[in-house]
Design a binder for these strands. Structure first.
Lengths: 225, 225
DNA sequence: TCAAAAGTGTTAGATTTACACCCATGA
DNA sequence: TCATGGGTGTAAATCTAACACTTTTGA
C-alpha cells in the first residue's frame, strides 16, 4: 500500500436506510430479515456498502433505488455509527440515512421480492447490531425536519385531504391536534392549495383534495407544524 | 483479504474537529495550516484517522485531547462527508465533530505548538477540501443545540456575569437581545444560580457572578434561549 | 462629576389554545 | 333517518416584544 496515508488502516463503510412511510394512519418503517452472515435472519435495515466510485450520498440513493425502484426520494443523513464491534464480522462503519416515501409509489411485488415489510414505528422489534439506535435517531431528526419544513408531503400522495394531512402530523408527532386550529394554520400557508377535486373514499360527504405547491413555498424560518 | 465482506472495498476514515470558543465577545473556531500532503499549507480543521481499535467517538475525543490537552469536552457529531474526490490524495471519508471549549482552559503554549489559531466564525478563510462546509453545518447544529439545551456554558468559565452570558448568546445567534427580556428569562431558570461573588473586571460597579448547576437542570422540552 | 456598565417592570400586541355545532351524504 | 366524517369562528389565556431610567463606582 503506497498511497499518501499508507500507514493508516482502512475500514468498510456502508449505508443503512431508514425508510419512512405513512399508511392506514400509521407511521411505519421498512425492515427485513438480514440475508447475509453474520447476523443472518435478524431484523435489519436495508443497506449496502459504499463503492469506490460513489459518494456516500450516491451510495444511499443507489441502495434506496435498488430496494424501492424509486429515484430522487427525499433523503437526509442521520449520522455515522462507528463502534468498534458494531458489526460482528469485521470493522464496518455505517452511515445511516432516512428517506420519506409515499407508500403507494412502492410496488408491493418489488417489496416482497426484497423481503422487506412495513412495521409501525412504535412497534419496531429488536434489530441487528445498532439498527434500533439508528431508527430512534432517524425518527427524531425526521420529526424535527417535518415540523420545520414542509417535507411531510413526501409521505402523502400528490392529492390529499386535510384530514389525511392532520393524521400524518399526528402520527409523526405522536399527539392529537385540534382540527380547527390545524386547519386555521394550513389556510395561512398559501403553498398548500385547495383543488376543486373531491375525495369520497373516506366519507360520504366527500372532502376537498389539496396539493402541495413546492414552487409557491419560499423558505420560511417561522414555519411550524 | 478473507473476511466476511471480502469482495468490497475499504476506505480511510478520519475525524475532523470544529472547535468553538468564545473570547472577546466573539464566537471563534480553531483552525491551522495543514501539515501533510496533499494540501500542505492550506487552512484546515484539525483531524486524524480513525484507528482500528477505537470507535469514531473515541477517535474524535482522542484527537480533541491531542490538540487541546482537554478531556470530556462537550462534543457532538456533525455528520459524515464522503464525496469521492473530497481528498485529493486517496479516498477518505471524514466524520466531522464539533466541540465547545472554554478558551481559558486551553493552554496557549500548547495551542501555538500545534500551530492552530482562533478565528472569528464570520471570518473563516477558504479551507482545505470540504472543511468550509463542515464548519457551516457545525455552526448551524451548534446554534440549534445551544438554543434548546443549556450547553452554552461550556464556552464560558464556571463563573460568569449575565452580561457575558448575553453576549455569548448574541454571538451565537448573530443578533442582539433585549437586556431586560434576557434577564427575565434567566431568572426563571433555577439552574442558573446567582452567587454572592462580584466581578469587577468589566465595570466599576461590579456585576454578580452566576454559575450553571447541571444537577439542578432537568431536561426541559420548553427550554429556549 | 462624569462615563460606563449593572440592574430593574410594565404594557400592548401577537400567538396559542380551548372549545361545539351544523352540513352533506350513502347506507 | 341516522351515523359518519367534513367543515367552520370566537374568546380567554399566554407569551413575546418594546421600551427608559436609576445605581454604583473608579478615574
Amino acid at each position: 500500500m503506497t498511497g499518501f496515508y499508507g500507514n493508516y488502516h482502512k475500514v468498510f463503510v456502508s449505508v443503512d436506510c431508514i425508510i419512512f412511510g405513512f399508511d392506514e394512519g400509521e407511521l411505519r418503517v421498512l425492515i427485513g430479515r438480514r440475508q447475509m452472515d453474520p447476523g443472518r435472519g435478524e431484523w435489519s435495515l436495508y443497506g449496502g456498502f459504499v463503492r469506490h466510485d460513489e459518494s456516500i450520498d450516491e451510495a444511499a440513493n443507489r441502495v434506496l433505488a435498488e430496494l424501492t425502484g424509486l429515484n430522487k426520494l427525499f433523503m437526509r443523513q442521520v449520522g455515522a455509527f462507528g463502534n468498534v464491534d458494531r458489526d460482528p464480522g469485521e470493522r464496518v462503519i455505517s452511515i445511516a440515512y432516512y428517506a420519506l416515501i409515499n407508500v403507494k409509489d412502492y410496488d408491493d411485488e418489488l417489496r416482497r421480492q426484497h423481503g422487506v415489510e412495513w412495521v409501525n414505528i412504535d412497534n419496531v422489534p429488536t434489530m441487528y447490531s445498532d439498527h434500533n439506535k439508528m431508527i430512534i435517531k432517524a425518527r427524531k431528526m425526521m420529526q424535527e425536519k417535518v415540523s420545520r419544513e414542509p417535507v411531510g408531503f413526501r409521505l402523502l400522495p400528490p392529492l390529499f385531504t386535510l384530514t389525511q394531512l392532520q393524521h400524518l402530523y399526528e402520527a409523526i408527532n405522536g399527539e392529537e391536534m385540534d382540527k380547527r386550529n390545524f386547519r386555521k394554520r394550513i389556510k395561512e400557508m398559501d403553498f398548500i392549495e385547495k383543488t376543486e377535486l373531491i375525495d369520497k373514499t373516506s366519507s360520504k360527504r366527500g372532502a376537498f383534495l389539496y396539493r402541495f405547491n413546492k414552487h409557491a413555498y419560499k423558505e420560511d424560518p417561522n414555519f411550524k407544524l
